[in-house]
Design a protein around this nucleic acid. Structure first.
Lengths: 359, 359
DNA sequence: CTGAAAGCGCTTACAG
DNA sequence: CTGAAAGCGCTTACAG
């Protein structure tokens, strides 16, 4: 039997296009360098890490040979020895969500500068999957996590943190005990409404996301506050929560208008929702911004290409990612437990063409 | 001096919120399991890997203790020993390009199913950066690469492949010696134009990307072929190449119309370009699709939300990613060099509302 | 300034 | 069926 198998293998091999040729796929190791330089591996190691002294001559010789052999230390061995991998894990619900690419780029840029590597994982907001992945990544000796999936029931993250695993939350947060880089969602919502009011709008509707997420609660709070401060009475007929997708919001506007009549302006608490709202409006032959103004929240990469170009509360996604990575590396490198800090970045109202002054 | 420093440290430590508590951050090792089970580590290893025999009793006992201790093998050690890491590197120009998220999700989903991990790197299409990153990832013992940055001058990729490193190209390709998952760009372009012709259009313009990229050359070839086959004469005034961003295409349409007069339809060879084209048209008070029809290429996640919803040649991004991962794992696991295969997936014409029949 | 040795946590022949 | 030993490629005390 073994014989037959062998024969088959041979046959296929004979037909094969490129025979293996046995090039030096095997990378040079520290041993090769040491041997060629006539020193001990420990010496090479010391020279390369810059720790400890070494005579100028040996140093130069070793460096020379490192060049020649194109030697690069094996990160696995190094990681095993040092108990760290210079790798961090990024956990997002779904990379296809338009908010993530910019944030990821920010993370990636910072990490790259500091010799760290980024491992990406999607959870579809399923908590069991998330736990599995976290576990997995810990076995891979990931040095820390950036996590953008935190919800009210994310106790496992609290526990992880308690165990001393470096974690920073991104865009979502979980109370003061967890490091987080988030955005001032309250202020953002407030500013949006204030701007609408400034433009003469009074009957202002809100198409909001799930109240399970603090960020949507905050944006709503901003809406309420700005309205009340301007002495405009809240009208619950103008409020829709729990709108998820852009299709949802398409439906939401229609309901809204049936229920409460046509508002003068609509605050969509995310750009995709704004897109849906605008589409819904157009479907009903209502013009944006001539008949009703729309303001979004996000400033995702496409916002300025929309029709009309979307006036929106810009989140500094790139910066959030960048800072999250920065914070994480600090946590990782710190010898002692650092006091958690929740960094709240400012949003910026980006004025384009979807809001019009009321005559 | 040392003393002063010590004092300071102490003070801070005293103020610190959570004292270290020393929980068992140290994960259980195979040694712990072996000890507790009263067997050798090799036995544990064998049982866990399923290789070699083991008596039912010891097997059960060991598995039991693995549970108790929540033991997970250290991937670094395993990788070091086995010379592989179960990690693959993904190299893209920029994750913010709208074509990537879906593809990445496809890769990620396949990898996850097979116990592999995804490392992500951006190169901004800079070849030196790319080489650096590839080098880096090799030191991290990445088992193979999925690369979406191939251009005419990407000889370093050819060399890498020659050395036996498993690589598969994604969405771009580099001749028949490199495995690649791409899309039938010629057919896609051809179908787009054929559809426009079917709808009664004759004066059809093209707003195309850089001719450095084979994919744009192919889409153009499809345009030319479909036109000629229908007996429509080519008009160079209706052709614009080297349009990069959506702002470019905004400008491009304007020039186009000045030069060649208003076309009946425009083939934008990417969705962002279509977006720019439509905007440019609207700016000139030309209605889409009533005055001129527009067809795109990509079907990026936003295409159906555009105004009008974009008729476009859909690329199966998710599937491309998925298949690229699939192919790569085959290359990695295969003992002998596999003959390179360039898989060309079909595009699909997605009819929405940006093309109208000509009366 | 430099080397020998131990060890990080695994796996894989090799004995028995 | 099971264990002892070697080794993957590093780094880090420890001597000298």
């Amino acid at each position: 039997m073994a014989n037959i198998y062998f024969t088959v293998t041979q046959t296929i091999a004979a037909n094969d296009c490129n025979k293996p040729e046995e090039i030096d796929l095997s990378m040079a190791t520290i041993k090769d360098v040491a041997q060629k330089a006539g020193v001990a591996t420990s010496t090479v190691s010391r020279i390369l890490s810059g720790k400890g002294e070494a005579s100028k001559e040996t140093k130069e010789r070793v460096l020379q040979i490192v060049q020649e052999l194109n030697y690069k230390p094996n990160a696995l061995a190094k990681g095993l020895k040092e108990g760290k991998s210079n790798t961090i894990g990024l956990i997002v619900p779904n990379i296809r969500d338009l908010v993530f690419p910019a944030a990821i780029r920010g993370i990636s840029d910072y990490l790259e500068k500091h010799g760290y590597t980024l491992v990406l994982v999607n959870t579809d907001d399923k908590i069991e999957l998330e736990k599995l992945h976290i576990n997995n990544l810990q076995n891979r000796a990931v040095d820390g996590f950036i996590i953008s999936t935190a919800k009210k029931d994310s106790v496992h993250l609290l526990e992880l943190k308690k165990k001393g695993v470096p974690i920073v939350l991104l865009l979502r947060h979980l109370g003061d005990t967890m490091d987080a880089i988030i955005v001032d969602n309250y202020q953002g919502g407030y500013n949006a409404i204030q701007y609408l009011i400034e433009k003469g709008h009074k009957k202002i509707a809100i198409v909001n996301g799930t109240m399970d997420l603090q960020l949507y609660r905050e944006r709503y709070r901003g809406y309420v506050a700005a309205l009340s401060e301007a002495g405009i009475e809240m009208d619950n007929n103008l409020v829709v929560h729990n709108v998820e997708s852009w299709e949802d919001s398409l439906q939401a506007v229609k309901n809204l208008i049936e229920r409460g009549g046509c508002p003068e302006a609509i605050f969509a608490t995310s750009d995709p929702k704004a897109l849906g709202v605008i589409r819904g409006l157009k479907d009903m032959n209502i013009k944006v911004p001539d008949d009703v103004s729309v303001i979004g929240f996000d400033n995702m990469d496409m916002a300025e290409m929309m029709d009309p170009p979307l006036t929106t509360v810009a989140q500094p996604f790139y910066k959030c990612g960048y800072m999250a990575a920065e914070r994480l590396l600090r946590l990782i490198k710190s010898k002692r437990t650092l006091k958690p800090v929740v960094e709240e970045l400012k949003t910026e109202l980006l004025i384009r063409s979807s809001v019009k002054e009321r005559p």
